[in-house]
Design a protein around this nucleic acid. Structure first.
Lengths: 195, 195
DNA sequence: TTGTGTACATACTAATCAGTATAAAAAATG
DNA sequence: CATTTTTTATACTGATTAGTATGTACACAA
């Protein structure tokens, strides 16, 4: 990787860490520069403005990271009830970087930036859409193998599960991680009853 | 109401509207002053600083408003399955001030301010706790009347329902209100199977 | 009338914000 | 090597931020 590309990547990853913990608007460019040792000239050489950097961060850091945790585990689904539960359990309990106190980077950004920046919103909707589609497809495969009841609406289940995840991430920020296992147990009950 | 009390109330209600749409940190004191016609002297006479105003807004505007919509309808519960569903339907579809694009004021503040301000967090946890307790109590009453299965864990259900609400409010900010009816339908399915 | 606290008004400050101007260093290319 | 392009560095700007300093208008009591 060239030195310039290293600089760009460092800006994006460090910005991601700061924004994850502080929020997008609270994280100033000067704040990013101070923690990266990158100068202002370098920052504005690589990004036209703060929002362009933020969009690049969503597309190049958040999207790939969340895709790997949320969508990929469902693509070679064998048993949707188990696969969806395990995917959720892994995201909530096994991804070391994500802390209950700070929630989920994608959920945070939807919350903070959806009403304020159309480009951010689009990029985050794309992630949500793909996650929902993967859950829906997984459920539909389960219906084909009769693991899931025929009267279950896959799209509704996908929406319900995604909402549950966003919500428990929100709750976790206020109540701490102790609500995660409770949520997971009831998610398991909900999923079981689909079969 | 004395003139001074009117000024204070106006600051709180207008701040609430602005913060609901823009977020807490993005809403500057000058922004509040411009829309209320209140002067800076009056603002800092009534509140020591911005955070004290924000805390008063949570306790005196958000808490009573959300309590009336979320908790009160469950206190004289008759049929938990129906009552919880109707409470949720009313909050999502029938409270005219709340717009999908801007989400829920309480959820927004948990998301934005929980990691940054311990007092805000405590005040918002109080609301969440009371809502969860009301749902739990409602479910337990349903177990007593045999409307709800005996093996259902009321606390887990309460956590699951609250997470679902926070989550669908988050999703609605990105996807629009079209996800509300879908969520409600699947919530109904989930609640039914508790019986 | 004269004092005293309440409620508000105005002008200011120091810090921070995103972004720019201008240059120099570094790297690639001839 | 010489030149051109890429990349980084420094110093600045005007706007905006939360908060302060200092004042005044007014009610009400002695």
């Amino acid at each position: 990787m060239s030195k310039a590309a290293t600089t760009r990547t460092m800006i994006l990853t460090k910005s991601f860490e700061l924004i994850y913990k502080q929020g997008y608007q609270t994280t100033s460019i000067d704040n990013i520069l101070a923690t990266t040792q990158v100068t202002k000239g370098a920052f504005f050489y690589h990004f036209k403005n703060k929002d362009e950097m933020g969009l690049a961060m969503i597309n190049e850091v958040i999207f790939p990271g969340m895709y790997a945790s949320l969508v990929k585990p469902l693509l070679d689904a064998k048993s949707p009830i188990n696969d969806i539960y395990e995917m959720m359990r892994n995201v909530l309990l096994k991804v070391p970087f994500l802390r209950a106190k700070y929630g989920c980077p994608a959920v945070n950004l939807i919350e903070e930036m959806s009403p304020l920046n159309e480009d951010f919103k689009q990029a985050l909707v794309k992630l949500t859409d793909q996650w929902q589609a993967a859950i829906k497809e997984s459920i539909n495969q389960g219906k084909a193998t009769k693991e899931i009841r025929g009267d279950v609406n896959a799209e509704y289940v996908a929406c319900f599960v995604v909402a549950g995840y966003s919500g428990i991430r929100n709750m976790g920020k206020a109540m701490g991680s102790s609500c995660y296992p409770i949520y997971l147990q009831e998610l398991k009950n909900y999923l079981k009853q689909l079969g």
